[in-house]
């Protein structure tokens, strides 16, 4: 059972945990992200001496488990990150997680791309539209995205060529991608 569940996607596991009240699916999901959760939480544990990992992690898991049943989760990593930050920032207040508009746009495009993988006509259409959106992007972002995504340059290569730090590079790439997504989504209205 455990073996079969580990092969399922996050979405599937969440729906199982919700609809069938499947604790095992929930556990598999938590297990999948546990190392990231630990890695993200370690600096906090280091900085704050009165935080006990034996208390922090179980209560974090509990909070995740509670919000899993009630909240709309598009992306598990965003959701976990939000809950973790909320827990460590204001432990007394349980702030609900709302995916941002940009996040939803991104997810939408990702889903369309995923669907188009098996449909040649859709894929051709999608490629044309994406390239149009890419043309409208300003030259700097266009260059960055082309370099990173289309020419498979690594962070190290790009930071060497542009002179930006990795963090700056990442945030710029993220912003450029967000702009591209927005342009792509607005194409539908422009057309």
């Amino acid at each position: 059972m455990q073996q079969q569940l580990t092969n399922l996607s996050d979405k599937e596991l969440i729906s199982r945990a919700r609809k069938q009240n499947d604790r095992e699916a929930e556990g598999v999901l938590m297990d999948r992200y546990s190392h990231l959760l630990v890695a993200v939480t370690i600096p906090h544990l280091k900085n704050n001496a009165n935080l006990d990992p034996n208390i922090v992690f179980p209560s974090l898991l509990q909070r995740l488990s509670a919000s899993l049943k009630t909240q709309t989760i598009y992306k598990v990593n965003e959701w976990i990150s939000h809950i973790q930050k909320g827990y460590l920032g204001k432990p007394e207040k349980n702030t609900p997680f709302y995916p941002s508009r940009d996040g939803r746009d991104l997810l939408h495009i990702e889903n369309t791309v995923d669907k188009a993988a098996t449909n040649i006509i859709d894929r051709q259409d999608l490629i044309v539209r994406l390239e149009q959106a890419l043309q409208r992007l300003n030259t700097e972002d266009n260059h960055l995205i082309t370099q990173f995504y289309l020419e498979n340059k690594s962070f190290a290569d790009l930071s060497a060529s542009t002179g930006l730090t990795r963090e700056r590079l990442r945030s710029q790439l993220k912003a450029a991608k967000g702009k591209l997504a927005k342009l792509f989504m607005n194409q539908g209205y422009v057309k």
Binding site: H35, L36, A39, K46, F57, E78, S81, L106
Partner: peptide
């Protein structure tokens, strides 16, 4: 990593030497 904050944060946290020793242990425990 460009998209995922969680993974990037985790990466940044683990890049600091002093955090890695606890990481494996805590992960296994969790």
């Amino acid at each position: 990593l460009t998209d995922c904050d969680l993974c990037y944060d985790a990466l940044q946290a683990l890049e600091k030497e002093e955090n890695t020793e606890n990481y494996q242990d805590l992960t296994n425990k969790l």
